[in-house]
């Protein structure tokens, strides 16, 4: 168990370092001097040189990377060159919005998708199963941005049921809830279909296994067979998929934040890329990568908690 955690931690560090290095190289390859773009066409060469130095762009690439990791080691993500605030403050200020959005979206996909999948598996080939099947595939194939734009048009602009932009008033819980519905729907809709299909398939598989026949042979009520004996096994793949899918969820969240003009990491990355505010881009990407590593580890741990076979192999 301890060995497993150490292994995961080491792997996580490697992934984060690779991601950061890759991003440095990409920034380096993007044409145009970031300092010049940031300062606009009328900037003097001295100003540009000064800005380059503040962003650390005057150093050779390997030194830039080393410096970044060096600072990171001291818990310093660098300074925002425009507002002169620490990047860490900005990122962690925006992070809760993104997390809240992701958890709402996935929570809502689980609450609808898992029961739907179970129902379909247990009532295979009935009308409801077929309709769910078609709808699920439709949900999966509709891209998040289409859902985002159309839900915005229909529910916010035309029907005016939900607000269109922003995250809601600070401290007003109900207002925040109203603001999260549409973005969460945009991210979660394909996940409803995805989870419904996944749970249906694994539930069907589990229900055909020998130990379910045993449970039935003991006359256990069907409700116990399904919810206690089968469901726990059937959700195992779902947990893994959600953990690994965190990457997709994050990217969908980033996109959705831009469409709905919601504060969050995505909005932060987008704004800082358009202004070539690279320290902020670096910091946000770093935190998102760490988030991804944490979520895959977490899903492994949840799986181990659910499945004693995995637990003893950790």
């Amino acid at each position: 168990m301890l060995f497993y955690l150490i292994k995961r931690l080491a792997l996580g560090v490697v992934i984060v370092m690779l991601a950061v290095t890759l991003l440095f190289c990409m920034i380096h390859l993007v044409p145009g001097d970031p300092a010049r773009i940031l300062l606009g066409p009328r900037a003097t060469p001295e100003l540009i040189a000064g800005m380059s130095a503040r962003m650390g762009l005057d150093q050779p690439l390997p030194i830039q990377i080393l410096l970044f990791f060096g600072n990171l080691f001291r818990g310093d993500l660098g300074m925002d060159v425009i507002t002169n605030r620490p990047v860490a403050d900005m990122v962690f200020g925006q992070l809760p919005y993104t997390l809240w959005l992701i958890f709402t979206a996935i929570g809502f996909a689980m609450v609808i998708g898992i029961p739907l999948g179970c129902y379909s598996a247990l009532h295979r080939n009935t009308l409801i199963d077929r309709v769910t099947g078609v709808l699920s595939v439709a949900c999966i194939t509709v891209p998040a941005f289409v859902v985002a734009l159309y839900s915005l048009l229909i529910f916010a602009v035309t029907l005016n049921w939900f607000p269109a932009v922003g995250a809601g008033e600070q401290g007003n819980f109900w207002d925040q809830v109203r603001h999260i519905v549409l973005p969460a729907l945009a991210i979660g809709l394909s996940w409803i279909g995805y989870l419904a299909r996944l749970v249906r398939a694994s539930m069907l598989e589990v229900m055909g296994e020998n130990h379910i026949r045993t449970a039935r042979a003991y006359g256990l009520p069907e409700r116990v067979v399904v919810f206690r004996y089968a469901l726990k096994l059937a959700v195992l793949p779902t947990v893994t998929v959600i953990g690994v899918g965190m990457g997709f969820l994050l990217s969908a969240a980033l996109f959705t934040e831009i469409v709905f003009a919601r504060p969050g990491i995505g909005k932060l990355i987008f704004d800082s890329i358009t202004t070539r505010n690279y320290p902020v881009v670096m910091g946000s990407v770093l935190v998102s990568t760490v988030l991804f590593v944490i979520s895959t580890t977490l899903s492994d741990l949840v799986n181990a908690w659910l499945d004693p076979r995995i637990r003893s192999s950790l």
Partner: peptide, 20 residues
């Protein structure tokens, strides 16, 4: 079932629930 008639199945390694 399981009260008046009980059964022991063919393949012991797969007849018990693995997660309980």
């Amino acid at each position: 079932r399981g009260d008046r008639i009980s059964i022991v199945f063919q393949d012991p390694m797969s007849t018990l629930n693995p997660v309980l």
